[in-house]
Design a protein around this nucleic acid. Sequence first.
DNA 1: CCTGCTGCCTGGACGC
DNA 2: TGCGTCCAGGCAGCAG
Length: 280
Amino acid sequence: MPELPEVETICAWLEPRLLQRRVERVHIARHDVCTVWEKATSGRVTPRQLLKGGRVVELCRHGKQMALVCDDGRCVCIQLGMTGQMMMGDADTGASVKCRHVHVRWLMNDGTELAFRDPRRFGGITCLVRRSDLDARWAELGPDALTIRVDALKRGAQGSKRMVKALLLNQRVLAGVGNIYCDEALFLAGIHPETRCCELSAEKVTLLARTLRRVLRGAVRAGGSTLKDYQKPDGTPGIFQRSHLVYGRGGEPCTQCSHELVRAVVCQRGTVYCPLCQPV
DNA sequence: CCTGCTGCCTGGACGC
DNA sequence: TGCGTCCAGGCAGCAG
């Protein structure tokens, strides 16, 4: 599932292939995956709202969201949800042509095609009219997790009785962390996922911020984690899944102490941790 | 403010 | 081979 490192990898791959290209045509196979920012559902989204005729001047990311920005300020903000993919290739022979669940295609003026595919449709596309709308949308999220600072994390944790896992997964506190990197960071920081935020020492919060940045940076370097659906826009996988220490390893021995890793449900999410290395 | 629950959605795994 | 069932989980919305 795409979290911050996967989206960052996708953006980095797409940027040189999209910048300065013009969107010649937009094909919308499913209108219901598209919404217009701060507009009540007033009919179907138009190709123009999806950047038709615009020149791409910027690709950016905040947390798990990515956006294409055109020279006239129009933007599309893309959330990949659980199973969303961006595919890019030749408009006639690229992989997306014969794929199911491709909901939107952008045909560029150089004969390439960008496609949004999302079998389970937990993701979606938001159209924005001005570049400043994108800033407004992203201002509702917390700071980007890749560069999270200790004081921002402290503010979220201070005096809060919620569990630290809930804190890390809350995109308004910290943007970009999902279930995988949450569990990985908590393991490496030696923090039990059910620890109440107010019980965390200042040292632990500092360690957690540093660990989050380290885990996410490492995952970006590895091109993200490919479990099932995620792939880079050219179809190649990431390799960070090989580095997972707890995620998907319930029942296996802990890499640090050999004790059996526990799988439990925390915050309604499947959660894996080491009961010895991550004491309550 | 917080937690916990539901619903959205498909594909893969598994049991029979 | 083909059913039925369960599970994965990001996020919005709602009740308590």
